[in-house]
Write a protein that binds this DNA or RNA. Structure first.
Length: 645
RNA sequence: GCCGGCGUAGCUCAGGGGUAGAGCAACUGAUUCGUAAUCAGUAGGUCCACAGUUCAAUUCUGUGCGCCGGCACCA
């Protein structure tokens, strides 16, 4: 007879198998009212699950964060019922809970529009108000297939058909509405509550495969209470204000126009930011033992054929042709084959390894139109690329050195936290399985030695080798791969790179492809969102504006600006005939970090009044001290003495 | 590339079958002012492009291009 152990360690005996509901009632009416589901020996299950063995139980109530996933999953079911009630003939497919909410994919001839949301939400609230119980039923596989086929739910039937035959098939009903579902669910639709909102419609391929039919997806967000929902919506609004496309326009950093889709026109301020970022990274690479090179933009097709890119990516390459010549040149989509050419130029010795060859390489790729996104995903971009030619024995050390370099770079730009994914062999790929086994094992081992923790990203490696992906998140929570480290045994083979070893024989080097930013464009986009345009002084494209209060101070303002400029600061002057309030506002809105205000007083005493962006007060300092202080503050983090990078 | 939405002044947006409006910015003039908007005036538009319907299209329809949100893709 089951003995139930609760989180406080207490134990309760029952003479017969019991459901979670019964246990909760036995403990008290408060818990019975609050319990939504339970963790049975660590696994979340319905309260109605029958417990016939000694077990540990933790009840999940609305207070627990775990309730969110249940609420969202149940909300997806409610959404599906509402949609089928309103739009007969619509087929249901899948509807999981996701971060912040849920979605459901429907098959319907006519797509949904946001105009439908009001009606759907109203219907959902009706269903929730009815509070129909979720009831679980195990069903025979063939019976289940027949059941859904009879209803005209061919997607559901397909799902069951594709489940392993060992899988237990369960249906969940809420009143008359029935869905194929693994569960678990809460007690009834009432438990969903009213803190939800439908957010957007989208197309999505059946089973995520572009060869399949496109379904209509409805996204929603759901929370435990109205306060949480409001907070989330507010946070979303705030995030939208940080959008790099918006800030790029407001701060006059860059623009993109129809004649050069996917390419960036960098304006003076944006390019200043770019150059600051570039100069920083160049110093870091120099210090880390990289040798910088520059390779051609247009390269004959034959090299891409050898490297395998022509075969794999031909339709994503920009091709150039010359009238009188019967040959194709490709705008390089990446730098690797070019770097191998430099490596191959002359006979290499093992003594030269590891050779770290870096290039800020301009690359062009014909990205699908739907993939373009501001400056984060473009067709013309500059990789902070490098290839490390090394021996197998050197992979671990080089991986550790790289992760260390990347971490400190990310830290300096204000990203102390980032995610690492390990992407293994994809389909299709080049190279033997044995070579892949080897490369994956080497990278895994390198991670172990370097103390790198990662999540798996199966099947997402490059076609020539496994990779580590270093992922940063944008303002509204989208993940972007920035850094990468790829172990490549194939390209050296294909392009015939070799070195003379200690034994006097010729050997293939391993190539490590690696990038920290990924592309300058993407990294700067994320950087803009990270700081919402309020850059730390060393990154700000305009660091100081000297603003006058009266025209009598114009000459002195010129002197002040010159002094800041001599100290290497990016300074502008504002001598316009406007009130100081207007000037403060204007430059605050422009997100200038420091305003140096000078009036008669300052001119007479040779001081400046410094006002920091976002602060109310000012600090009056002698000119020399202000210059010294700001110059020091504007020092890039890698140049601050005592700061070991 | 696919599904949906959108495209009006430099920017943010309103409007609507009879060839257009606001605020901010710009420009001109006045104002010399002490830390988030001084006042007045002026100028500014192929209403994304092309085709169709119509006496008349920026408005309706279609196609194309671009942008936005997803999906797919991301060497």
């Amino acid at each position: 007879m089951p003995a139930i152990t609760l989180p406080d360690g207490s134990e309760r005996q029952f003479d017969a198998p019991v459901t979670g509901t019964t246990v909760a009632e036995a403990i008290g009416p408060g818990l019975a009212r609050a319990a939504l589901a339970m963790k049975l020996d660590g696994k979340t299950v319905d309260l109605a699950t029958l417990i016939d063995h000694d077990a540990n139980i933790v009840f999940i109530t609305r207070r627990d964060p775990e309730a969110l996933e249940l609420i969202r999953h149940d909300a997806a079911h409610v959404l599906a019922e509402a949609v089928q009630a309103l739009y007969p003939g619509t087929q249901v497919t899948i509807g999981p809970s996701i971060e912040n909410g849920f979605y459901y994919d429907f098959a319907r001839n006519e797509p949904f529009t946001p105009d439908d949301f009001a009606a759907i939400e109203a219907k959902m609230r009706e269903i929730i108000a009815k509070g129909a119980k979720f009831e679980r039923r195990v069903i025979d596989r063939d019976e289940a297939i027949g059941f859904f086929q009879a209803k005209g739910e061919k997607y559901k039937a397909q799902l069951i058909q594709d489940l392993p035959t060992t899988e237990t098939i369960t249906l969940y009903s809420q009143g008359d509405w029935i869905d194929l579902c693994r569960g678990p669910h809460m007690r009834s639709t009432a438990d969903v509550g009213n803190a939800f909102r439908l957010m957007k419609v989208a197309g999505a391929y059946w089973r995520g495969d572009h060869r399949n039919a496109m379904l209509s997806r409805i996204y929603g967000t759901a929370w435990r209470d109205q306060k949480e929902l409001d907070a989330y919506l507010h946070q979303l609004e705030e995030a939208e204000r940080r959008d790099h496309r918006k800030i790029g326009k407001e701060m006059d950093l860059f623009h993109i126009q129809e004649e050069a889709v996917g390419s960036i026109f960098w304006h003076p301020k944006g390019w200043k930011l770019y150059r600051t970022v570039e100069a920083y990274l160049r110093r870091r690479l120099d210090a880390a033992g990289y040798q910088e090179v520059k390779t051609p933009q247009l390269v004959d097709r034959s090299l891409w054929e050898k490297s395998g890119h022509w075969e794999n990516y031909r339709e994503h390459m920009f091709i150039a042709q010359v009238v009188d010549e019967d040959k194709f040149l490709a705008l390089k989509p990446m730098n690797c084959p070019c770097h191998v050419q430099i490596f191959r130029h002359g006979l290499r010795s093992y003594r030269e390894l590891p050779m770290r060859m870096a290039e800020f390489g301009s690359c062009h790729r014909y990205e699908p139109s739907g993939a373009l996104h501001g400056i984060m995903r473009v067709r013309a971009f500059t990789q902070d690329d490098a290839h490390i030619f090394c021996t197998e024995d050197q992979i671990a050390t080089e991986t550790a050195r790289f992760v260390d370099l990347l971490s400190t770079v990310y830290r300096d730009f204000g990203f102390p936290d980032f995610r690492i994914k390990f992407a293994d062999r994809p389909e299709p790929r080049i190279g033997s399985d044995a070579a892949w086994d080897h490369a994956e094992a080497a990278l895994r081992e390198a991670c172990a030695i370097a103390g790198v923790e990662y999540e798996l990203n199966p099947g997402e490696g490059a076609f020539y080798g496994p990779k580590l992906e270093f992922v940063l998140r944008d303002a509204i929570g989208r993940d972007w791969q920035c850094g990468t480290l790829q172990v490549d045994p194939n390209l050296p083979e294909r392009l015939d790179a070799e070195y003379v070893g200690e034994d006097g024989a010729r050997h293939r080097p391993i190539m490590l492809h690696r990038a920290i930013f990924g592309s300058f464009e993407r990294f700067i986009g994320i950087l803009i969102e990270q700081y919402a345009g309020r850059f730390p002084l060393w990154l700000a494209p305009v660091q100081v504006v000297v603003a006058t209060i009266v025209s009598d101070a114009d000459d002195y303002a010129g002197e002040v600006a010159a002094a800041f400029a001599r100290a290497g600061l990016a300074v502008n002057t504002d001598l316009t005939n406007q009130k100081i309030n207007a000037k403060v506002r204007e430059h605050s809105v422009a997100l200038v970090p420091v305003l140096a205000v000078v009036g008669r007083k300052e001119a007479e005493t040779r001081t400046v009044a410094l006002r920091r962006l976002g602060s109310q007060g000012q600090e009056i300092l002698p000119l020399e001290e202000a210059v010294a202080r700001l110059a020091s503050e504007a020092t890039p983090p890698d140049l601050i003495s005592g700061n070991v990078a």
